[in-house]
Nucleic acid binder design. Structure first.
Lengths: 341, 341
DNA sequence: GTGAAAGCGCTAACAC
DNA sequence: GTGTTAGCGCTTTCAC
């Protein structure tokens, strides 16, 4: 690999002149510029980013920590992150921590050693982990989940609103007896989505039957077992089921099918977060879109801003607005009243 | 950030002693070792990987170039790659080139500048691009796709066999009139899967109706339009459709449904590559599993081996064996003859 | 405008 | 065994 030194020799100029033309950091006479360019061409010179990073204390690299790549939530998120990175000459180091607390810490250390300029943490909201991140002094932004009372560097979605959109859709379809199958209340998104459901039911003047409210996890299994439990325990089944995530809805639909209950003919089901599986799920799932690609894009833009400003950027939260996606799982029919909204 | 120099001062030893204890590269007396360790703790010292890389000309970083993260093929592949990387103290720079020829070249340049130790190229088999990779002098391994006559650094699956597994399954279900909806014959996997289909049909003594053979693309749209074409053109529909990929099968099933044809009641459909959507697709799709996670794992292990051996590793191809996954799209019923195999 | 030189943080010869 | 030193490839004062 040719180095700047080689170029300077070949072009018969000093190192700093070479640097100046490469970085356009100072005026260099056309004659010299040409000679340098020529030499670069001939020797097929490529700047060594490692050396540059060492000197500039900037690597143009960010770490992206995700909890489980196979979760369909991530691909669009990462695409958003990657697009912005690419356009800004940044690279993304992917850290898949598959819910391993220890792996997070190891990765954090590694990122520190590699001198990344910043960190993106998707769905990593354990305050213990976050403490470590804070201690590291790295710039970072949280994506999607956050600890209670956390009030900075965050990009997420309006979770209460997402549930409201779901409930209102169900109500417009004429359903009154509506169940809610939620996630882990240790996670802010699950709390907020549940709260949104509750308040929107009330707003619509609808009763909330405690027998129809379940907490659980963001997993297919959770939706499955909870809906089975509901079928078993409840005297009269709900007309519709509102869930805290598509993946829960998947479990719900599987559970209902197993019990010979059809969706949407017998019971309607709506998801929340519109993942890429939903369009073609056993029953195309109506859901609430969280514009995950944009979430990635905006997070990375946010982080870049923090990296570029030397003085502390003031804390900020960016809350995206979700939107309803109507498919088949709520018995939507064309020309129905929903059209009016 | 504390540096080795700080440590050496604090511990009152020389730089090389510090380096020796950190890298365990030479014997250091317990007394000094202790003092150094102590200082490292107190100053919360972390080695600077950038400086180390500059010196050692090794970054412990590989670039992974994929064509489109949202393709469900990638997440498990990348998880496999990432797991091996992590266990070997390597980092993965993710390059999502979304089929952009120019983006590949730019990324290649970037990876070169960042001094990555190697490259993993998934489904990048354009020989023009590959030439550039070769020219770069970087170590690399190709994943899944390769140019014709390419005979080194490759990890893929036995494509002809994958089709044979599919055809044999169909045949065991009693189907004789079988269609094939393939991919782009410019891609080796598509050619090989088609060839596997043809030969296996012949082996089974079955006629191949040219009207039932379609080439296309690895996309839902391709499956959709081709099956529509088939429905329109053909006098008597096939009993089963063999496809070159799950994503094509998805399009096929959608197209059939649109035409009021049920799967598997009227026509059976089998996929090929068993992506993560397939289990829960409109109709749970029978498919051929390519063990994509292992593919990622093995590729990265392969690359690491190449990186670690200074002398050229002899070229090698690793071809994984696919396996049948039976779900519902071929009308599989428990206790049917298939059980015997 | 151009060049010389110091130094980023680390490793590895080579003395001692 | 331990310390001194040169140098990885680059950027950036600071003279000229």
């Amino acid at each position: 690999m040719a180095t700047m030194k080689d170029i300077s020799k070949k072009a018969n100029v000093s190192l700093s002149t070479v640097s100046a033309v490469i970085n356009q950091s100072a005026y260099v006479s056309p004659a010299l510029t040409n000679r340098v360019m020529q030499a670069i061409k001939e020797l097929n010179y490529k700047p060594n980013a490692v050396a540059r990073s060492l000197k500039k204390k900037r690597t143009n690299t960010v770490g992206v920590i995700v909890s489980n790549l196979s979760n369909p939530f991530y691909p669009p998120l990462i695409e958003g992150i990657e697009d912005v990175s690419f356009n800004n000459n940044f690279n993304v180091i992917l850290c898949n921590v598959s819910n391993g607390h220890k792996k997070i810490l190891t990765y954090l250390e590694l990122m520190l050693e590699k001198q990344v300029d910043g960190l993106l943490l998707a769905n990593i909201a354990n305050s213990e982990d976050l403490n470590e991140v804070e201690k590291s002094g790295l710039k970072y932004v949280l994506i999607n989940r956050k600890p209670s009372f956390y009030d900075k560097n965050f990009v997420g979605v309006n979770n209460p609103l997402s549930s409201e959109l779901a409930v209102n859709h169900l109500v417009r379809q004429g359903y009154k007896r509506i169940a809610f199958l939620g996630g882990d209340l240790g996670i802010n998104t699950a709390r907020e989505r549940k709260a949104g459901f509750m308040s929107c039911m009330t707003l619509n003047g609808l009763d909330i039957d405690p027998m129809l409210i379940f907490d659980g996890e963001y997993s297919l299994e959770s939706g499955y077992t909870n809906v089975k439990k509901m079928i078993e325990q409840v005297e009269v089944l709900p007309e519709a089921i509102c869930t805290a995530s598509d993946i829960i809805a998947f479990g719900v639909i599987k559970g209902l099918r197993d019990s010979g209950i059809r969706v949407p003919e017998d019971i309607s089901v709506i998801g929340n977060d519109n993942n890429s599986f939903s369009e073609n799920f056993l029953v195309p799932l109506s859901s609430i879109d969280h514009s995950t690609y944009d979430m990635g894009k905006i997070s990375m833009e946010f982080l870049l801003e923090m990296i570029k400003e030397k003085d502390e950027t003031r804390a900020r939260q960016i809350i995206l607005t979700p939107s309803l996606v109507v498919r088949e799982s709520c018995g939507y029919k064309k020309n129905k009243i929903d059209k009016l909204y």
